[in-house]
């Protein structure tokens, strides 16, 4: 998919939670996040993390040195979850 879009002159970038699959598929630019599937942009209601992941991805459009680049974000799933729980408590969404 990314390769078809890139061939039309539109830069692509992909967050991924499956580094092995991405290494095989070789999209032009990827950002690896060690998160649970279905949570590419983080955890519920963690607006800052969701936005950060998008911005990190968009930054790779100009910063990726070569095609096939996979950039790893040093964010752990446990940290993301812990922060998300605190945020949801602050919003009154969980006890």
């Amino acid at each position: 998919m990314q390769r078809a879009v890139e061939r039309r002159g539109i830069p692509t970038v992909s967050p991924t939670v499956a580094r092995d699959v991405t290494e095989h598929a070789k999209p032009p630019r990827a950002v690896f996040l060690p998160f649970l599937m279905g949570h590419l942009f983080g955890v519920p209601h963690h607006v800052a993390l969701q936005r950060r992941i998008i911005m990190e991805c968009l930054g790779r459009v100009t910063d990726a040195p070569e095609s096939g680049d996979i950039h790893t974000l040093p964010i752990s799933w446990s940290t993301a979850r812990r922060e998300g729980i605190e945020i949801e408590r602050g919003l009154g969404l969980r006890g």
Binding site: Q2, A4, V5, R8, I10, P11, V13, S14
Partner: peptide, 23 residues
């Protein structure tokens, strides 16, 4: 099929960047 169909569609919509997210 699918990849080319979507690539054509986003090109027609004037996209400058595609954020492509495999779930």
């Amino acid at each position: 099929t699918l990849a080319e169909d979507i690539a054509a569609a986003v090109s027609a919509e004037g996209a400058d960047i595609a954020l492509a997210a495999p779930a």
